[in-house]
Lab assay of single mutants.
Amino acid sequence: QLNAMAHQIQEMFPQVPYHLVLQDLQLTRSVEITTDNILEGRIQVP
C-alpha cells in the first residue's frame, strides 16, 4: 500500500526521489501529510 501511495505522490512531484517519498510515508502513512511535507520544504530534495 505504501508503494502505491509513493507512486501517486511521485506523479505529482517527479523531482522528489522515490526513496525520500517512501521514507516520509513510512512515518506519516498519509499521502496528504507527505504532500504537505514536500510543499512546505520539509523533505530535502538533492
Score class of each variant (00 low, 15 high):
Tyr18Trp: 11
Leu27Met: 12
Thr34Pro: 00
Ser30Tyr: 03
Gln10Tyr: 13
Pro17Val: 04
Glu40Pro: 00
Thr28Leu: 01
His7Leu: 13
Met5Thr: 04
Glu32Trp: 07
Ile38Met: 04
Gln15Asp: 15
Asp36Glu: 14
Thr28Trp: 07
Leu27Val: 13
Val21Ala: 05
Tyr18Thr: 13
Thr28Phe: 04
Pro46Ala: 11
Ile38Trp: 04
Glu11Arg: 15
Pro14Lys: 04
Leu25Lys: 00
Glu11Asn: 11
Met5Arg: 04
Asn3Ile: 15
Val16Asp: 05
Thr35Ser: 08
Ile9Thr: 02
Tyr18Asn: 12
Leu22Ser: 02
Val21Tyr: 02
Pro46His: 10
Leu2Trp: 12
Arg42Glu: 02
Gln26Thr: 11
Phe13Asp: 02
Ala4Ser: 09
Ile9Glu: 00
Phe13Pro: 00
Gln23His: 10
Val16Ala: 05
His7Ala: 12
Leu20Glu: 11
Phe13Thr: 01
Leu25Ala: 00
Glu40Gly: 11
Thr34His: 01
His19Pro: 12
Tyr18Ala: 13
Leu25Asp: 02
Thr35Glu: 04
Gln23Thr: 08
Gln44Thr: 11
Met5Asp: 05
Thr34Cys: 02
His19Ala: 10
Pro17Phe: 04
Leu25Asn: 01
Gln1Asn: 13
Val45Thr: 10
His7Phe: 09
Leu20Ala: 08
Ser30Asp: 07
Asp36Met: 15
Pro46Ser: 11
Ala6Lys: 01
Ile43Ala: 02
Gln15Asn: 14
Gln23Met: 11
Leu22Lys: 03
Ser30Pro: 01
Thr35Pro: 01
Gln10Arg: 13
Gln10Ile: 14
Phe13Glu: 00
Leu22Gly: 01
Gln26Lys: 10
Asn3Tyr: 13
Ile9Pro: 00
Gln15Glu: 15
Met5Pro: 02
Ala4Arg: 11
Val31Pro: 06
Leu39Ala: 07
Val16Ser: 03
Pro46Phe: 07
Val21Arg: 00
Thr34Glu: 01
Ala4Asn: 09
Leu20Lys: 06
Gln8Met: 14
Val31Gly: 05
Ala4Asp: 10
Leu20Asn: 05
Val45Met: 10
His19Thr: 07
Asp36Ser: 15
Arg42Cys: 06
Ala4Thr: 09
Ser30Asn: 08
Ile9Arg: 00
Asp24Trp: 05
His19Phe: 11
Gln8Ile: 13
Gln8Pro: 02
Gln8Thr: 09
Leu27Ile: 14
Pro17Lys: 05
Leu2Cys: 12
Ile9Gln: 01
Val21Pro: 01
Glu32Arg: 13
Pro14Gly: 05
Ile9Leu: 10
Asn3Ala: 15
Thr28Ile: 02
Ile9Met: 05
Met12Thr: 07
Tyr18Cys: 14
Pro17Leu: 05
Glu32Cys: 10
Pro46Gly: 11
Met12Ala: 08
Glu11Thr: 12
Ile38Arg: 00
His7Tyr: 09
Arg42Ser: 04
Gln44Ser: 13
Gln23Trp: 08
Gln26His: 10
Arg29Phe: 11
Gln10Ser: 12
Glu40Lys: 15
Glu11Cys: 14
Gln1Ser: 13
Phe13Arg: 00
Asn37Thr: 02
Tyr18Gly: 14
Val16His: 04
Asn37Pro: 02
Leu39Asn: 07
Glu40Ile: 08
Phe13Cys: 05
Ala6Gln: 03
